[in-house]
Design a protein around this nucleic acid. Sequence first.
DNA 1: CGGCGCCGCGCAAACGAGTGCACCCGCGGC
DNA 2: GCCGCGGGTGCACTCGTTTGCGCGGCGCCG
Lengths: 347, 347
Amino acid sequence: MDKMPKGSATLRDVATAAGVHPGTASRALNEETRSLVRSETVERILFAAEQLGYKPNLLARSFKTRRTNSVGIVIPDINNPLFPPMVRGVEDRLFDSGFVTLLANTEGDPDRQRKIFESMVDRRVDGLVLATASRKDDDLAMFAAEGIPIVLINRVVEDATFSSVSVDDVVGVRMAVDHLRNLGHVRIGHVAGPQSMSTGHARYHGFLSSMAASGAPADPELVAFAEQFSVAEGERCATALLEKKRRPSAIVAGNDMLALGAVSAVEHAGLRCPEDVSIVGFNDMPFVDRLHPPLTTVRIPHYSIGARAADLLVELVRDQRGPLRVVVLAPELVVRQSTLRVPAATR
Amino acid sequence: MDKMPKGSATLRDVATAAGVHPGTASRALNEETRSLVRSETVERILFAAEQLGYKPNLLARSFKTRRTNSVGIVIPDINNPLFPPMVRGVEDRLFDSGFVTLLANTEGDPDRQRKIFESMVDRRVDGLVLATASRKDDDLAMFAAEGIPIVLINRVVEDATFSSVSVDDVVGVRMAVDHLRNLGHVRIGHVAGPQSMSTGHARYHGFLSSMAASGAPADPELVAFAEQFSVAEGERCATALLEKKRRPSAIVAGNDMLALGAVSAVEHAGLRCPEDVSIVGFNDMPFVDRLHPPLTTVRIPHYSIGARAADLLVELVRDQRGPLRVVVLAPELVVRQSTLRVPAATR
DNA sequence: CGGCGCCGCGCAAACGAGTGCACCCGCGGC
DNA sequence: GCCGCGGGTGCACTCGTTTGCGCGGCGCCG
């Protein structure tokens, strides 16, 4: 009875099989328009569809409806352990909502980012999750112009003109410096992340204000600026700090990558972490608890960030023109073994 | 002069602007058919296209040509540090070839995997890169049936019925056991990965044969089988091994995750790695060099695996019915600090 | 000088689904 | 008994691009 479906059954096929017009079949198969068709015929059509193993051609549908049920997620580099959990969060949620996820890495290259953006809009993604925003990002205007829903994660833009989900960077670093203060540290250094990104910027200023608020203000000598969030840059900056005449007894790093570079730096300087210098990171990337030494750091809810972002995004694509929403999640200090009370002798 | 493009200029628009028929414009714009139209008119059309900022509607094109220039990459879990570099490899190459990458995580759940597969074929991806194959995987038949090009990475299926790129698991473990032998170890245990996967299977048998070939065959007491490649399972299996009356002085783990679990196990047993028991992993995941202790492991070229897979795949989608190709890359032992010569006393 | 071939291009038919509009029929109200 | 109304379907067009086909014109060769 079954006839061999070449390719697969088309809407017209089920229509003729059910003895109705393709238009009617379309309505019957589509949830929202199903009420327009007599329930009896609906059943006949559904049966025929089932029988023929009808699968709607998503390309044709997307072409007609201009909705692809796909969203892009663009990040700097999936190799950065910070991102996999976030990606996972958005992918999980999005898939459950019937969306498919296009992944792209910018590698921090503006040209490549632009090409990625173009590729995404050309493919008519329904929305985007971006983890690559600069504090001022002109390319984002492209999407605004196209009317494509966006939600930023982790980093945000300066003028809150897009929905976003991130964590409170300044309370995060405050927790870090307070922790260090409580351990008796006074000369606290900072290897700051790139100031072109909101994370690097906010954490730097958070460091400054926390220091000022907790006794002795920061020594300008003791902050170095990394060009990027990499361990190489972290090492470079940290060695610079350690070479000062009066080196810091503790360093708060702009993120975990920089922190890793910092511990390398103290080792290469013939010192030990944490005995000689304490280090605290930011992000609590996977596996930093197993590093040597296990890293004290401020934890951010990676997965939740992704998941919340996905939720916001589906909301945005469903009822277009939704309000712009910015959610800020709370960080949490997790103390491990890279920080130590400063010995009474050296105090 | 410019007229405001609502949405964007269509092919018809540039055709009328250039005073030609849409069909002609199509040919002129398309690289391969361009030779069919007089170069003079080509130029006119190109100019008009440029002028109007014409961007072809990829949805319409895909709908017509049945090619989406998209490929799916499905992996167990992007959180496993093994995969980001591979994903990166395929994404890089694919993007350069004009493809976009759909990412999906199966989480090892067959139901979810099936849904992902369906989603992918429904979206008419041009090809797939799969890192989730079981040794016998029936779901893969779905793609074979649909005629969708596939290349397997890392894991392969038993009957080499798909193109794949992987590493030589048995020479990998042989390097591991030879290394251990050279350090004087004789009681060498193995926490084996899941036997349903080619990696777990091949490494286990590689362990057996290498042991036999290098002196004393493996003691069946000293191998435990993990249900999955996780640190929890690694810890469970390793503690089981350590509880034997005559515990092993070294353990080769099915992969780095299991190895991490194993070092936890020796620590929880009140022993030390590597002083009391040496451990060697497999994969050389990112950051295992910074772990405590830095892990001796056999390195596989993650990025290259992804990149080669991508190359194979574009080759497959370009000239359909290409030959099935299986490439096997060479592993490499990297010795760090989780392995140590067994002290003469205990030898 | 006539016919054949080829080049360049227009024409129109797809691809598969969604959707405004019109039509038909049955029923209820006046 | 007639008119109106509305639920249920059919009809045809649309989305934007690709592509087979055919036609007109020009050049070349016989």
